Amino acid sequence: MTERHEVPGPERATSEDAAAGEPTLAEDLLLLFQPDSGTIAGEGTLYYVLAGAVLADLGLAGQVRTGTGRLGSVTVAAVAEDPPTDRLFRASWEYVAERARGVQTVLAATGPTLREPLLARLVERGDVVRRSYKALGLFPATALKGGDNGRRDGLLAQVRAVLVDGVEPTPRLAALAALVYGSGTLPQFHRDIPWTSAVIARAEELKEGNWGAGAAAKAVTRTITATIVNNVVVAAAVLPRS
């Protein structure tokens, strides 16, 4: 059974931290939702996947490391001398700074607080628009749609290029494509990314950290990221999909 702990939520970690820099891996992952339906793809596994994206970003930045716990379980710990400045990342980093914890425990503890602050960042950037309407003509409701800045289309095209056309990815894009695959939602993108055996084989390579000779990430970074992504796969496999 996955151990659960309360972890402080990053309530103020919205666009204030991210506006001056590039979008985070977790933001990009959340942006790849289904705009035609007005909802987020893979809500049933979303919190695990977003937590995995935050850990992957921390891993790519060298701010966390993985290890082995009792009974051979995979643990993650903070690199004490290099805390992140982004408060959303800081909440996850501080959770593993207390002591090394199992990756599954970290995903379950830190994931539930991530969706809203990440969505707020996307809205602030103009990547996503919230639309209010009356459900059944009576009840106030909110739908989501892609913004007009084209960032989602551009991001999806990059993922497609990696998975379909075999373009060698950056480490960050490799992690993003692997997380989309690991979440179990990649078949929902069939219109843009065909669900074929070749695409599955390519995604499996990325999931295992085989990113290509030109993906300029140290071997240890690839190992950390692949370990985190594979733990997301394990978590997503046992959760209901919606």
Rank of each mutant, 00 (worst) to 15 (best):
residue 103 V to W: 12
residue 223 T to M: 12
residue 193 I to Y: 13
residue 111 G to E: 02
residue 26 A to N: 07
residue 16 E to I: 06
residue 68 T to H: 09
residue 16 E to M: 02
residue 92 S to Y: 02
residue 6 E to K: 15
residue 188 Q to P: 11
residue 227 T to V: 05
residue 219 A to H: 15
residue 43 E to A: 15
residue 230 N to I: 07
residue 47 Y to E: 03
residue 229 V to M: 09
residue 42 G to I: 11
residue 139 F to Q: 00
residue 136 L to V: 08
residue 13 A to T: 02
residue 85 T to K: 15
residue 162 V to K: 09
residue 26 A to R: 05
residue 152 R to D: 11
residue 227 T to I: 01
residue 190 H to D: 04
residue 173 L to P: 03
residue 235 A to D: 03
residue 181 Y to M: 03
residue 200 I to S: 00
residue 240 P to S: 06
residue 71 L to H: 12
residue 78 A to N: 00
residue 3 E to F: 15
residue 238 V to E: 05
residue 63 Q to P: 01
residue 157 A to Q: 15
residue 46 L to Y: 09
residue 212 G to D: 00
residue 51 A to C: 12
residue 187 P to C: 05
residue 108 A to M: 01
residue 121 R to E: 08
residue 170 T to E: 02
residue 129 V to R: 15
residue 198 A to Y: 10
residue 1 M to S: 15
residue 107 L to E: 05
residue 224 I to W: 13
residue 66 T to W: 14
residue 168 E to F: 00
residue 153 D to M: 15
residue 235 A to Y: 03
residue 52 G to M: 07
residue 46 L to I: 08
residue 61 A to C: 07
residue 114 L to A: 11
residue 17 D to F: 12
residue 124 E to K: 03
residue 238 V to M: 14
residue 5 H to I: 08
residue 182 G to I: 05
residue 163 L to C: 10
residue 50 L to C: 13
residue 121 R to S: 04
residue 73 S to C: 09
residue 152 R to M: 09
residue 30 L to W: 12
residue 26 A to S: 09
residue 42 G to D: 08
residue 15 S to I: 11
residue 70 R to T: 12
residue 127 D to V: 03
residue 71 L to M: 11
residue 7 V to D: 08
residue 27 E to A: 08
residue 202 R to C: 06
residue 104 Q to R: 07
residue 75 T to N: 04
residue 92 S to N: 06
residue 132 S to W: 15
residue 197 S to G: 14
residue 226 A to Q: 00
residue 172 R to F: 04
residue 125 R to L: 11
residue 167 V to F: 10
residue 115 R to N: 02
residue 122 L to I: 07
residue 24 T to R: 01
residue 67 G to Q: 01
residue 124 E to H: 11
residue 59 G to I: 05
residue 16 E to V: 01
residue 51 A to H: 01
residue 209 G to K: 01
residue 95 Y to E: 03
residue 177 A to D: 01
residue 154 G to E: 08
residue 44 G to R: 01
residue 116 E to L: 01
residue 238 V to A: 09
residue 61 A to R: 14
residue 204 E to Y: 08
residue 147 G to C: 08
residue 175 A to E: 00
residue 103 V to S: 02
residue 97 A to E: 10
residue 118 L to Q: 03
residue 157 A to C: 13
residue 171 P to F: 07
residue 148 D to F: 14
residue 77 A to I: 02
residue 176 L to Y: 11
residue 199 V to C: 06
residue 36 D to G: 14
residue 52 G to E: 04
